[in-house]
C-alpha cells in the first residue's frame, strides 16, 4: 500500500527520538584512543643515535636532524626538527627507528595560532613535557 514506507520511516525516527544518544562528550571526557593511533609524534632524545634512517624513509622530507661527534667518536643528536605541517602521519619513520626513540603519540590537540609553530623542535617538546614518553601537554 502506498504510504507504508512513510509510516515505517516515521516509526523508526520516533523510536530513535526516544532512544539513547551516542554522543561522546569530548572536551569534558577525553576520548580513549587505541595505542596505535597516529596523531602526533614524540621523540626521546636520549635514545636517538642520529642514524638518519627516519630522514631517509620519510616520503615528504619532514624530518631535519643534525648531529655532532663527541669525544668517543660517537654521534650525538644536536637538533631535531619536524615540519609537522608537511607530515603524512604515515608512521614509516617510527617503524624504521632502530631504537624506538621516535614514537607516534595519541596527542591530538595540536591546533596552533601561527604557522611557525608547526615547525616542531622535538627536543624542546620532549623537555617541556613531564611525561616520560615525551608527549607534550
Amino acid at each position: 500500500m502506498f504510504g507504508n514506507g512513510l509510516i515505517k520511516g516515521l516509526r523508526i525516527t520516533l523510536k530513535r527520538f526516544y532512544g539513547p544518544n551516542l554522543t561522546e562528550y569530548y572536551p569534558e571526557v577525553k576520548p580513549n584512543l587505541p595505542p596505535r593511533t597516529r596523531s602526533s609524534m614524540a621523540l626521546e632524545p636520549e635514545k636517538c643515535i642520529s642514524c638518519g634512517l627516519c630522514v631517509n624513509i620519510c616520503p615528504n622530507q619532514v624530518i631535519n636532524l643534525t648531529s655532532e661527534k663527541d669525544g668517543n667518536n660517537k654521534r650525538v643528536l644536536k637538533t631535531y626538527h619536524m615540519n609537522i605541517g608537511r607530515c603524512l602521519l604515515c608512521g614509516l619513520c617510527t617503524q624504521s627507528c632502530p631504537t624506538g626513540a621516535l614514537r607516534l603519540s595519541q596527542e591530538f590537540e595540536n591546533a596552533v595560532y601561527h604557522r611557525e609553530e608547526l615547525l616542531w623542535d622535538m627536543i624542546a617538546r620532549s623537555k617541556r613535557s613531564n611525561k616520560p614518553s615525551g608527549e607534550e601537554g
Binding site: L33, P34, R36, T37, R38, L88, L89, C90, G91, L92, L104
Partner: peptide
C-alpha cells in the same frame, strides 16, 4: 581501522 592501522581514513 583505527585500532589496527592507527588512523581513521588514511590507513597506510
Amino acid at each position: 581501522f583505527e585500532m589496527t592501522a592507527g588512523n581513521r581514513m588514511t590507513l597506510n
